[in-house]
Write a protein that binds this DNA or RNA. Structure first.
Length: 731
DNA sequence: CGATACGGCCAC
DNA sequence: AAACGTGGCCGTATCG
């Protein structure tokens, strides 16, 4: 009876009521957007109920089904319109005669926009199916538009076209001509695609994606399709919106022309727009042209070189970890399952479940499950916590690294390839990991491999890995930027800057506060390091106190006393904050890169004394927190950003050197470290070459650079070059 | 089963 | 209220 009533009620619900109900649900942003689009389409009569919904109550599921149909309709309409409106200066190049005429015109250009269309985003496996080019200075007399945009299909399923081999060989002169500048959006991808077909794309002069990052690192998206509407006023659909998962070779040529032609058209327009803005920042332009653009080639080579993993080792190690995890799992379940209700077994990987069970087991409520802060201090008193920590460490290690990496071998190259994204961070550092639109790719983050996972990475046969770090890179950078004598003198004397600070602060001899013979830190040196890093990262006195095990006033006093002994550094820190507050940005070294922190210019909002916790002032607190954050970011961005420049410049030099030497390659970079692979019969002079590359490619004024070099067959700690040679001579 | 958010944790 | 900067990835939770 109740059911019948419900059913009756449901039938009676009007569409209007249904919309109110559905939109009141807890919908994700993207769902809400879709639902509103459907509502609008239904109200304007574009669409009606979905066939599957006839006779049923109108549901969110039905609305989303309608959305999918609507999207297909819309897509077809958009594509039809795109083809109808194909600009008259867009041309398909489909035969020898047209290609020959194009090549003649290409020879007259000084700069050309280039883009490739491919079967997918695996640059080692997928292939080029078409090439688009924008020739900006070619005019076809009857047309008013200046410039032409061409698409050369080479492997579409249908339509008259030339073969890829023929087109590439005919274009060789153009591709290899450094005198014809190439302008691309995300050139790394296209350089790698040409490389995949054994062709170079030489003479890249501008990458609109990288340039955009220098113009505004806070840009929410660097996709051409997002930048074009924003900065050029040109609407643009993404590949996925237009074609879904259809590979480009299945797209008919009329559609391919208008889509691919638009890519280089927009890239060229964006270049023109960006160039005007760059003329306002000549130092940044110089940096872009001499560092970021040449670096693109280095990145492509480094990524393509790739990694070799010791799969036998990974398998054995993975099994060891699995065995131990199983033991710990059984033990933990034995102790904790009595605190867990429900049919399903207690899930040790579930934070909420474990927090509840553990709290009951130890008889007090845990605030959170943070390993470092909450659990580790209790591990000695509670075996169950020690076990859980070990279990979590092992499952993290195997789940993210030991078991996961072996599955990511590239099917074509049989190697493992990471991505190094030169615009992946706001400060200029590289990020590493998956591409934005390569969710199912084999790419992985090589910059956060823990020590135990690094053991899987081995040098290629007959080679060794040589890691070279910038010794105390960020401190030297700070010494240089601030001009602080205490730091500069330490580096001049070749002594440890932390120990030097400790000696000064504690008024004790340097050797007493430096590292112990075992290599361990003295408490004095360790404290200096903590305070130093805390300052660089803008840590509050509250957190500093927490880390040093002091009360807040003591931590404040400690910091103040230490920095009183380094007045230039203190003044520099203050200047950074003032600069952020006044201009809303800071400069990296030699004004090569900006870090824009617009929140720094906000005016602080008043919070009356005693009202800190008053919810009425929550907005004000959040507002002020944004300003505080910008202040912390300012100094950090100057140091991290300048250090990233040093690393990038050094990579270019390293790459040049590697090209000259048989068997040398750049293997990777981890922020303050470059890793080379070189033949294992290297000499002392070879090591001296690497030392010179590291210390002389980019100077911090008069502050000397330093490097520590290690030789390895397997990625990890390694041995010093001296030990390597001693061992070799002994054998 | 996909999309999204989040806690937690790996690196420098 | 937050309290340390820059990242990426895994597993769970949650939603429909």
């Amino acid at each position: 009876m109740a059911d019948a009533t419900k059913r009756k009620k449901a039938v009676q619900e009007t569409i209007e009521d249904a919309w109110v109900r559905i939109l009141a649900m807890k919908n994700s942003d993207s769902d809400t957007e879709k639902l509103l689009a459907v509502k609008d389409a239904m109200e304007t009569g574009v669409t009606g109920r979905h066939p599957s919904g006839v006779g049923k109550r109108f549901s969110k599921a039905e609305a989303l089904r309608i959305y999918n149909d609507l999207r297909v309709m819309l897509r077809e309409k958009t594509l039809r319109e795109m083809v109808e409106k194909t600009p008259r200066n867009y041309f398909l190049i489909t035969n020898e005669k047209l290609l020959a005429r194009l090549i003649e015109r290409l020879g007259e250009q000084t700069e050309v926009a280039v883009d490739t269309e491919t079967t997918g985003v695996d640059v080692y496996t997928d292939v080029i199916v078409g090439i688009s080019l924008t020739l900006p200075s070619v005019s076809i007399p009857p047309l008013a538009e200046k410039g032409i945009h061409v698409y050369i299909p080479v492997q579409h399923d249908e339509g008259e076209q030339l073969s890829r081999d023929y087109v590439l060989s005919e274009l060789r002169g153009f591709l290899y001509d450094e005198g014809i500048g190439k302008v691309l959006h995300n050139a790394i991808f296209d350089i790698a695609m040409f490389r995949r077909h054994d062709y170079d794309l030489r003479g890249v002069t501008w990458d609109t994606m990288v340039a955009m990052h220098l113009l505004n690192e806070n840009e929410p998206s660097f996709r051409l399709k997002d930048l074009a509407p924003k900065y050029l006023g040109v609407e643009s659909d993404t590949f996925a919106e237009l074609f879904g998962k259809t590979p480009f070779n299945e797209i008919t040529l009329d559609i391919a022309l208008v889509y691919a032609g638009k890519d280089t058209d927009l890239t060229w327009q964006l270049y023109q727009f960006q160039y005007v803005h760059f003329t306002q920042m000549p130092t940044v332009l110089e940096y872009f042209r001499t560092v970021e653009v040449p670096l693109l080639y280095v990145i492509v080579e480094m990524e393509a070189n790739g990694y070799i993993l010791d799969l036998d080792f990974a398998k054995e190690y993975g099994e060891q970890l699995a065995t131990r995890a199983k033991e710990l799992h059984a033990k933990l379940i034995g102790v904790l399952s009595k605190h867990h209700e429900g049919d399903a077994e207690l899930n040790l990987n579930s934070g909420p479940q474990m927090k509840a069970a553990l709290s009951k087991e130890i008889g007090k409520e845990l605030p959170n499950m943070d390993a470092k802060k909450t659990l580790k201090p209790m591990a000695r008193d509670f075996e169950v916590i020690a076990d859980l920590l070990e279990y979590r460490k092992i499952t993290k290690l195997s789940g993210t690294y030991i078991d996961a990496l072996p599955t990511k071998q590239n099917p074509t190259t049989k190697r493992w390839h990471s991505r190094f994204n030169p615009i992946g961070t706001v400060t200029g550092r590289f990020s590493s990991g998956k591409d934005e639109e390569a969710a199912d790719s084999n790419q992985f983050n090589v910059q956060n491999q823990p020590e135990d996972a690094r053991k899987m990475f081995v040098a290629p046969p007959g080679k060794v890995l040589v890691s070279a770090d910038f010794k105390a890179q960020e401190i030297r950078c700070t010494a240089y930027l601030s001009g602080e004598p205490v730091l500069i003198e330490a580096f001049e004397k070749g002594i440890d800057p932390y120990a030097n600070m400790a000696s000064m602060y504690y008024k004790r001899p340097y050797h007493e506060v430096n590292k112990l013979p075992s290599g361990e830190d003295t408490p004095e040196r360790k404290a200096m390091k903590v305070v130093w890093l805390a300052t660089l990262y803008g840590m509050s006195d509250f957190s500093l106190a927490d880390m040093l095990g002091l009360k807040k006033p003591e931590a404040t006093a400690f910091k103040e006393e230490l920095f009183a002994g380094m007045p230039k550094l203190s003044a520099w820190l203050k200047e950074n904050e003032e600069h952020v507050a006044k201009y809303g940005f800071v400069w990296a070294d030699k004004q090569q890169r900006k870090r824009r922190l617009p929140d720094g210019k906000l005016k602080r909002k008043e919070i009356p004394f005693g009202k800190w916790n008053d919810p009425r002032y929550e907005e004000n607190r959040k507002h002020n927190a944004k300003i505080n954050r910008a202040m912390r970011q300012g100094t950090n961005a100057r140091v991290q950003g300048s250090s990233a420049i040093q690393t990038k410049v050094t990579m270019i030099r390293a790459h040049e050197e590697c090209k000259k030497r048989e068997g040398w390659a750049l293997w990777g970079t981890i922020h303050d470290e470059l890793v080379f692979e070189i033949p294992e019969d290297f000499t002392r002079e070879d090591i001296a070459v690497i030392e010179r590359i590291m210390t002389q490619s980019y100077a911090w004024g008069t502050v000397a650079n330093g490097t520590d070099i290690a030789i390895m067959k397997r990625w990890g700690k390694g041995m010093t070059p001296e030990d390597w040679f001693k061992q070799k001579e002994a054998a």
